[in-house]
Amino acid sequence: MTTTTTTPLQKFTVPVLLLAALAALCFGAQSGMMNLYVQSVIMFMGINIILSSSLNIVNGYMGEFACGHAGFMAVGAYVSSILSVWLFADDAVFGTAVLSPSLAVWLFPVVILAGGVAAAFAGLLVAVPSFKTRGDYLAIITIAANYIVKSTIENVGAIGGARGFMGMGRVTKAMDASLPLPWMMIWVFAGTVMTVWLINRFVSSTQGKGIIAICQDEIAAEIMSVNTNKMKIVAFMLSSGLAGVAGGLFAHVLGYVNPGSFTIMKSTECMVMVYLGGMGSLGGSVLSAVLFTLLLEALRPLQIIKWVVIPLMLVLLMQFRPEGIMGNRELPQLFPKLKKFYKFK
């Protein structure tokens, strides 16, 4: 291992640029330069980045084929929505607010994280069978997990069942009332940056290399003293937990959730983003989430035809560039000059 020193340029360029860009976007939202539509597209971009990069842990780095990401998103969305409505808003089902709505601003991250933790535990539903099951069979289990979550929510009347659950709008309003800032956008940005940072740290650590080893050869990983079962639990829980964070943010951005948003269709969208960006490329996941969100919006005028065009694009992608936009690589590997500005392991 050669120890290269980090120049200040490498250390600060990306964080400073990123912070400036995000602050500019928040200012744009605050001052009304961006209308609500543009704001919501930007927030969905952030949420999609969380979804695609977290699914990439399992589908890309670990090489499994999990297709139930929306299920974990649903767990996070419902748990954090119920918590925030119960704590900070007067509601017909949950009664008056438990805490003062003015606290919502400060406790909101806790609520979102609680949704993430709940989703992480839901991830065990897939992680434990994965000890002995791989490939197609595990894929079927993940689809089943998605349906279990969706159908369970549909059948619990207290949280609205198939009609959905609302009231998060009152919580976001309460945040605005106590301090007028574009709060949801700030939280989405915070969640996105945290997710990408966390995953980057994870996959470049020796621990994370254990996951890449599992992807390549489980037996060889074991004889390298990698506790494969433990690593699978870590990977699935991290992946589903972050999906839960995305779900919580999604619910609060929309102000309304229903089980219909978390079908296999949504899981497929997550997978499309992962494979579009490139398996095992974090940069690819971020890039493809941005592109995919823009694409969905750009094709909106086509209405229902959109879902003919997008799958067709996917077919073409798989034909001509099956490794995705970035393949297995990260940005600095594609553009070595970037290394001057950013140190990437």
């Binding site: 291992m1 020796t206 080893a213 390298m224 003293s225």
Partner: peptide, 19 residues
């Protein structure tokens, strides 16, 4: 059964995984 998509050095350090 080496890990083909890791570098030689990464392959070697991976073995110190649990240490």
């Amino acid at each position: 059964r080496i890990f083909g998509n890791l570098t030689v050095q990464e392959n070697l350090t991976l073995a110190t995984y649990a240490r």
